[in-house]
Design a protein around this nucleic acid. Structure first.
Lengths: 241, 241
DNA sequence: TTGACAAATCATGTATACAAAAATACTGTT
DNA sequence: AACAGTATTTTTGTATACATGATTTGTCAA
């Protein structure tokens, strides 16, 4: 085993297995055989099982009564619920940040991120930059209230299947209608942060919830208009209904 | 290894280690040495490490940068936040149950549980029965909206350190003032469920949040009046601050 | 041909072995 | 006596071995 790989076999297993699962590489309902999977990923069963435990926790895998795991399958309603939960938790982070006052250093960075987001959405859209800045916005929002427990749980909700703030950004650059949705999202970003600064907790919470709903709207749009794109959205391959 | 033990070494490791941690059996900040711990629990490092991973996830342990874990330590604020989050998630479960309509079978059981709770809080208090019924109330509430994802996340929030609905019931039977708090809690239980049946989502959510606040009130009371009881509340031993 | 039972194979859960990295103890120097 | 550097001992992360229980395959009877 060379030096590079030894960084962490577990991390490697987690990342690669997650991406395999999200790609829909496994037949739905079938058990994931540990031995062959470990061979395929070039590591032993020990870190692989660790990664599987973690993915069970994330909800991507589910345990089989008689042992082992299978890929979980979701209904569209499950994904809607996951998005709803993300909205609820981000809303709580926003409310608490408003009530308690935002952590100054993070608030400072937030203004920079918002300015940068404005710049990348108009007049032309720099999609790659938007995705990265959007991620930072949501990460800052999670931590803005200064509570490590709140931050942890918000970030966990972001990892629920297909609930991530960036989940539906995949493929949006190919759909013109979605560019508007990014501008709308940025308007909401600003509104959320302004409410926080104004110490308007209830408003900040409601706005953050509504912001998550944008993902639901986009999901509905994709399923209705461009179901062929469903495969591009991480996690949507797991939707069996 | 005999037949009994083979049920699951992992489960055994998880339960025993969690209870050791909650008891405050480990010096705060010190690394938990895997080998000696495994010996102590009578199992090998493999299931022990699995259990440690899980407890990291629950927030009871935290990872050390250079490897291994230590017992996490919380501030009182962290525990308040954990309770707040439980309220938020139970509030969401209540709201969604109201908006979507409660699952009939669970709603039916809920009425039975509420009647039983009425019976155990007056005229005399059957404390043991109360704890068990209270647990069932919260379990039903989590599942009432009929969403497995919501149920999962609500139940997860209930496992946050010292956030469980039953955490502060320990020792309440020894404090007369707390008997009233149980009756108040039961009034809230009824109100939450009535709001759900009346499809009053916002009210159900607000009531469930407020219900969780009772735990905060009790926590504050304990810390102010009977700090000696702090050791009896699971998780409070980890509060360093 | 279908179904049930038995044998064999396979997969999981657990224990253990091993190597690399941390932590600790030690030695020699100033 | 204090400190730097080194050797030693732990300890972790990973691989592998092993046994029990699950699953599949094969065989035979109806």
């Amino acid at each position: 085993m060379n030096r590079q790989d030894r960084k962490t076999q577990f991390t490697k297993a987690l990342i690669e297995l997650r991406s395999l699962v999200l790609d829909g590489s496994f037949p739905s309902g079938a058990r994931l055989p540990e031995t062959s999977l470990a061979d395929r990923l070039g590591l032993s069963r020990t870190p692989l099982r660790q990664a599987m435990d973690r993915l069970v926790d994330e909800g991507l895998l589910e345990r089989i009564e008689t042992g082992g795991c299978r890929v979980a399958s979701f209904s569209m309603a499950d994904i809607m619920d996951a998005i709803e939960l993300r909205g609820v938790l981000e809303g709580t982070a926003a409310r608490l940040a408003a009530e308690r006052g935002a952590v100054p250093a993070l608030a400072q960075r937030m203004t920079e991120v918002l300015d940068a987001l404005d710049a990348v959405v108009s007049p032309e859209l720099d999609f790659r930059a938007y995705v990265s800045l959007n991620e930072e916005f949501h990460s800052l929002l999670a931590r803005l209230a200064g509570s490590s427990i709140v931050a942890r749980e918000v970030e966990r909700a972001n990892r629920l299947p297909a609930a991530s703030p960036t989940a539906f950004l995949q493929g949006q650059d190919t759909i013109p209608d979605f560019r508007d949705s990014l501008r709308r999202a940025q308007t909401q970003h600003r509104a959320i942060f302004e409410a926080i600064l104004a110490r308007e907790g209830a408003r900040a919470e409601a706005l953050a919830r509504e912001h998550a709903r944008l993902a639901r709207t986009n999901l509905e749009y994709v399923m209705r208009e461009k179901p062929s794109l469903a495969g591009k959205v991480p996690g949507l391959a797991l939707v069996a209904d």
